[in-house]
């Protein structure tokens, strides 16, 4: 048996068919049928009744992704320029918060942001505040940024390690200032990382529901909350829930195809 034997991939293929393709087909089936199993578009129309929630989710996820990108870009660059052994340590430090449970981390923010929490107490010493930080959409964005920023930093860092320091030096030699180096050299060369990062932050951010419940005070509903409500809530409607998941999937696919089209182009340019 050689290493390029296709049969080696069989176990995963079986796994993928059983636990990815089949469930996906079931979701599509439910989204387009009613209780009796007849074809209907009614579920999609009903999911449309929640469009304001969809809009809010996309908006908050978008804001969180942009903030993540802006924060992570310099970090990724800084990391990629370090000595290799230091890079390992820094990488570990970035991953460290992820050793803790996701819910626990979000729960901690609940305490930090509360009116009697440490942040407001410290501000109180200087005579400022207290501010209402918890239960706002800002808190939800903060939760998303905090939880998902490692997924932005790591791909950026990986793609930036491939940028040779001499290229940056050459740009500087040729008289490019900091801004020009950034826009014409660094950003174009790290596009694959940016694209992966955007997908890896945007997709979980748009479908989260724990963050909005804990930090949004229950009044900042997201798509995830809606879907959860259909499956575990009062009305228990698998069909509408599936239709919502389908809409979410289409949104995610659109987003991914958009970012990957950038990716391809830049790859061609690099050749």
């Amino acid at each position: 048996m050689t290493l390029n034997n296709k049969k080696l991939a069989a176990p995963y293929l079986v796994w993928m068919v059983l636990f990815t393709i089949v469930p996906l087909a079931i979701v599509v089936y439910y989204a387009f049928t009613d209780d009796a199993g007849n074809f209907t578009l009614d579920n999609l129309a009903r999911a449309g009744g929640y469009s304001s929630v969809f809009a809010r989710s996309l908006m908050l996820a978008l804001v969180a992704t942009v903030i993540c990108l802006v924060l992570a870009f310099p970090v990724g660059y800084f990391l990629s320029r370090l000595r290799v052994n230091k890079q390992r340590i820094m990488q570990m430090l970035i991953m460290m918060p992820m050793w803790m449970n996701f819910l626990l981390r979000t729960y901690a923010w609940m305490g930090l942001l509360s009116v009697n929490g440490p942040i407001n107490t410290i501000l109180g010493f200087f005579g400022i505040g207290p501010f209402t930080m918890l239960n706002t959409s800002g808190a939800v964005v903060l939760g998303m940024v905090y939880n998902y920023i490692p997924y932005m930093i790591l791909p950026l860092y990986t793609s930036m390690t491939k940028i040779d320091a001499s290229i940056v030096e050459a740009a500087e030699d040729l008289g490019a200032n900091l801004f020009q180096t950034l826009v014409r050299v660094l950003i174009p060369m790290s596009v694959p990382g940016i694209c992966t990062g955007i997908t890896m932050v945007f997709v979980p951010a748009v479908s989260t529901f724990a963050i909005s419940r804990m930090l949004g005070g229950g009044s900042n509903l997201l798509i995830g909350d809606l879907i959860e409500m259909q499956f575990l809530g009062n009305s228990y409607n698998l069909n509408v829930g599936s239709a919502m998941s389908l809409v979410l999937m289409v949104i995610v696919l659109l987003c991914m195809s958009f970012t990957s089209s950038f990716d391809e182009e830049e790859m061609e340019g690099a050749v």
Partner: peptide
């Protein structure tokens, strides 16, 4: 009833996201 439950869920989520 299913109809009331659904109305309740839609309006409740609308209220919360309003």
């Amino acid at each position: 009833s299913d109809e009331i439950n659904e109305a309740l869920d839609i309006q409740w989520s609308e209220m919360k996201s309003y």
